[in-house]
Nucleic acid binder design. Structure first.
Lengths: 153, 153
DNA sequence: TCACCGAGTTTGTTTTCCAAACCCACTAGG
DNA sequence: CCTAGTGGGTTTGGAAAACAAACTCGGTGA
């Protein structure tokens, strides 16, 4: 991945894009914060989960909190940065609900405080419009890069 | 991943969650649709990229389009379903810009047609409010599941 | 004729994943 | 006291995936 396009998408995925990482975030957001719950609810191998948790804690996305001294027991809680990944989970869920589930069935429904089922939409903060392809222009900020690749190859 | 929580997030990640898949989507959205562009801009091994492209085409997220007969040459274009993954890319980019880049530097700026830099926000389609943690309640639709795990374990 | 191009495929090695078994500290029951 | 169970991992050994580099194939241009 050397010499690739400099990009926050790639940087974010380098952190939370490994298998299971975003599912860990899903679980802790739902309140399943203990190791064995994560193993059961995600279905990940225990050693892999151990590695992911360590990485997410090191990155400041999760916090390892002791909830019992003797025996020592820990749970993993999302930090503020972790909670701010929820929009990613919501857009993934919306896409899956729309494109992967047959018959409009949703495996999980999120209810918003307004009383309706949450259907997340991404809007521009400035104008409030729903963001659509074709309404965007990309401006790479790194010399030598254009929207479609390196200018000087 | 057997017996895991039924969930559209997991289903979507099973499709586009492998290493490089979302970066492929980023590139084709930006207009870099050819194999060698993808290799250069993403920095992925060629054989891995070949596998990812096949999977994304099979899933209907990309389309393999011939752009030259003799010699036969193909490019990969996003389908409608592929373009609808852009909200995922935007939320990932926003998180990275906020939490990973020092000094507020953005490696890439997206300009919205309204004239401003795009700062994507996820809102509830019904009420228009920005979605925040604590304003949501999860309702699993699968018997035997609660928000935190299987009810009968 | 020779070099070069795009789009892959092949090769051999290094990493990672995975399931199952194991370990440790502690608690509860008989 | 002995045993079983729980939570949170670590260890083990084999299977799968990733990786960089080299190679192939059809065709073009000098």
């Amino acid at each position: 991945m050397k010499d690739a396009r400099p990009c926050s998408i790639a940087d974010t995925l380098a952190l939370v894009g490994e298998k299971y990482s975003l599912l860990v975030l899903r679980e802790v957001s739902l309140g399943a914060t203990r190791f064995d719950q994560l193993v059961r609810n995600i279905g990940a191998p225990r050693d892999v989960l151990t590695a992911r948790l360590k990485r997410l804690v090191d990155a400041g996305v999760l916090e390892k909190v002791e909830y019992s001294d003797r025996p020592k027991r820990y749970e993993y809680r999302p930090t503020q940065a972790g909670l701010e990944l929820e929009p990613v989970l919501h857009t993934l869920m919306a896409w899956g609900d729309r494109h992967l589930q047959e018959g409009g069935f949703r495996p999980m429904v999120l209810e918003h405080t307004c009383g309706h089922e949450l259907v997340p939409q991404v809007v521009c903060r400035e104008c409030g419009e729903v963001v659509e392809h074709g309404h965007l222009t990309a401006h790479p900020q790194t010399p030598g890069w254009t929207a479609t690749g390196p200018a000087v190859a």
